[in-house]
Amino acid sequence: MSSSILKLTIANVAKDLRLEWRSRDVYNSMVFFAVLVVVIFSFSFEPTSEESRHIAGGLFWVAFLFSTVVALNQSWARELRNGVLDAYRISPAPPEALFFGKVLGNFIFVTALECLMVPLFVVFYNLSSAGSLWQLLLILVLGTWALVITGTFFAVMSIRTRNRELMLPLLLIPLSIPAVVNMVKATSNVLTADFSAVPHIKFLAVYCVVFTTACFLLFETVLNAE
């Protein structure tokens, strides 16, 4: 990554964090949605500690998948307000800087949400991990990146469509299924320590590399499409 792309990526992230700090558009809607999922499922199932270990991975990633969709719609919507995206498109700045700025910004928002939600999951589902914590941490990072990189890319594809809030999940969720399945299995395997999580972690790493490369290469075409 050239130094100009890096500097502009940082400028984009700083701008997104400042906008979010002032508007709370993304974070409020994400937190509200994720808390609702955690609370409703905990009252619906009332699982024992052992059952929790088996289902928590699924609940956790489903909550984050849908919260991420909410966040991504909001984060691109602010670029459409007042037509700001056009100001970026007519500038000589490389489009990749906008893309990576958005990805990093969204990654920070979703990670901040996870920092808030993980303790809630532990409390509501009486969770404790039988496996290693560093593996859980790695799954969190890779899983979040997988959701955010594909989500940010498909969000920019759907922003100019009439039903963009419907279009994003329609595009994103089918493509995320392989990643989500591996996130859930890896998380459950670490929590229960029944099986190794390593093959699923490897899959997630490959998924992240492939989609980061593909999205990076295709972003400019998608940004300038009509």
């Binding site: 906008l19 508007s23 307000r81 007042n82 037509g83 700001v84 056009d86």
Partner: peptide, 16 residues
């Protein structure tokens, strides 16, 4: 870089 464009919409962020 040699072009300036002003549209109907202001092309600026309301929050800044």
């Amino acid at each position: 870089a040699r072009l300036g464009y002003m549209a109907h919409a202001p092309l600026v962020y309301d929050e800044l």
